[in-house]
């Protein structure tokens, strides 16, 4: 048995629990359920790596009754990327784009599809998405807001919210490339790499732009400061991401000409 120290993200109380070596001997990160007890009222899912380090602690929305000790839990399994594309069609592109723009993604109506979609998206946006915060799965389709992208998963169709067209086009291309690979694991990893890089690119663009600049200047500065080689398509998508995140005037500050990619 190995002892791990856990701090509850809700009440901040610290408790020490013992977990089976069988769990921590596994390669990669394992998730364990820590039920509520006398020290802390919250049931938690703790992600532990093979070095017995706690990598993440998350409150569990619905705790199983009767659990008393620390037990291993399986992560929510989602559909394959190909399956998700078939079920949601072009909406998948918009959903990934909305998450990149840090919009709240509401998946309503068919809860089963919503949970499965969360499982798959959570694998693309690993360590970033939280159910109930970034992605909300609900039966009622009444949730709306400026920073929300609402999808009826039963039809399926977009009910409200919008994402940048340049970003959508690039994500669509990424998805096509990823789905060219037969192996689902490789497809997901490829999408993870691509979306992660795009997210980093957007942060880099935000960091270098302070005054009116040409797109070529921005690309050069991003390359010299962050060693990120941006194409014009990626820059346009990064601008959509920043615009979606509410970065003021980003589209006015960067002047884009088609021939920048000549």
């Amino acid at each position: 048995m190995t002892s791990i120290r856990i701090q509850c993200p809700v009440c901040q109380k610290v408790k020490v629990k013992e977990i089976s070596d069988e769990i921590t001997n596994k390669s990669g990160i394992s998730s364990v359920l820590v039920p509520a007890d006398n020290e802390c009222d919250h049931s938690l899912v703790v992600f532990v790596d093979s070095e017995q380090r706690v990598r993440r602690v998350q409150q569990l929305d619905y705790a199983p009754t009767g659990a008393s000790g620390v037990v291993e839990v399986k992560s929510i399994s989602g559909m394959t990327l190909r399956g998700l594309r078939r079920v949601l069609g072009p909406l998948l592109t918009s959903m990934i784009s909305a998450l990149l723009e840090r919009k709240k993604l509401v998946l309503c109506n068919d809860v089963e599809v919503g949970i499965s979609a969360f499982g798959s998206l959570n694998r693309i946006f690993t360590d970033d998405l939280e159910l109930g915060k970034d992605i909300i799965v609900v039966e009622s389709c009444s949730v709306e807001g400026a920073d929300t992208y609402v999808v009826d998963t039963q039809v399926p169709q977009r009910l409200s919210g919008k994402v940048g067209s340049n970003l959508s086009e690039l994500v669509e291309r990424y998805l096509d490339e990823a789905l060219d690979i037969v192996d689902n694991e490789a497809s997901i990893i490829m999408m993870r790499q691509k979306t992660h890089n795009l997210d980093k690119a957007a942060e880099a663009v935000e960091a270098v732009v302070s005054k009116k600049m040409s797109s070529r200047e921005v690309m050069k500065k991003v390359k010299s400061s962050f060693r990120i080689n941006l194409s014009l398509d990626e820059l346009r998508a990064a601008m959509d991401i920043l615009d979606g995140r509410g970065v003021v005037n980003i589209k006015e500050l960067i002047t884009v000409s088609g021939l920048d990619d000549f």
Binding site: S214, R216, V256, S257, G258, L259, D260, F262
Partner: peptide
């Protein structure tokens, strides 16, 4: 036009 936008 590209020159006028980007000054390249």
């Amino acid at each position: 036009r590209h020159y006028s936008i980007s000054k390249t």
